[in-house]
Amino acid sequence: MFDASVWGQADLEFMQHGAVNLFWRRALLDDARQALEALSYDVQLIDCEQGWSSFQTQMSSLLRWDEQFGYSPWNGNLDALNDGLSGYPFPSSNKAALALVGFHSLVRNDRRSSGVVLDLLEYHSRQFLLFSKRLIVLVQTDDNRFVPPLVGGRTPQWNREEWMNKNRGL
């Protein structure tokens, strides 16, 4: 459980090593979501288990693709996703989190594109900070050995509870 009294605010912990945070156990991701919601974060969940087509549809809805670009859904073009993320729909609190559940399914289908998605999210999170907006990304994968490519020049870290290999069943 992400206890703010022990580690400080959960959001600051999640931003410490970059915006992208890895989770193996779904229960820990759910705890993280609750901790962020308690801090007035708007937490959106994207279920990646059904593959790229479903991911594209869900991202289109989240990013209000039709409103931004006049067509829908997002067609999977990663340059277009980059443009779409610049219009991320922040709530009035300017604090948002995106939880990608089952990310291993996207990686299995297209490792390169899934890495680019994480890189784009990291990039936009940093850009949003310039405007006093926070975007935290929680990535759940069933692959306890998952090592994503560098995102924003750094390696995404496993959450505090699963940082050590033995806590991910290794």
Rank of each mutant, 00 (worst) to 15 (best):
F2P: 07
L85E: 03
C48S: 03
Y123G: 12
Y41L: 07
R33M: 13
A32G: 12
L138D: 01
G87A: 12
K166M: 14
F90E: 12
E67Q: 14
A27D: 09
Q157C: 15
A27R: 13
D31V: 10
I46L: 00
R168V: 06
G169S: 06
G18A: 02
F69T: 05
Q16G: 05
V107M: 03
D110N: 09
S105G: 04
M59E: 00
L85N: 06
G51T: 01
V116C: 04
T141K: 09
G169M: 07
Y123V: 10
K133Y: 09
V139L: 00
D79E: 15
G51Q: 01
Y41S: 11
L150Q: 12
M164Y: 13
A99P: 04
N159P: 00
W52S: 04
D79K: 14
S132V: 01
Q9T: 11
L170W: 10
F128E: 05
W7A: 12
Q157F: 09
Y71Q: 13
Q34W: 09
S53D: 08
F90K: 04
E13P: 05
P156F: 02
S93Y: 01
Q44T: 13
S54Y: 00
F2W: 11
R26T: 13
N109Q: 14
L100A: 06
L45Y: 11
V101L: 09
T57H: 07
R64N: 14
R154Q: 11
S92D: 12
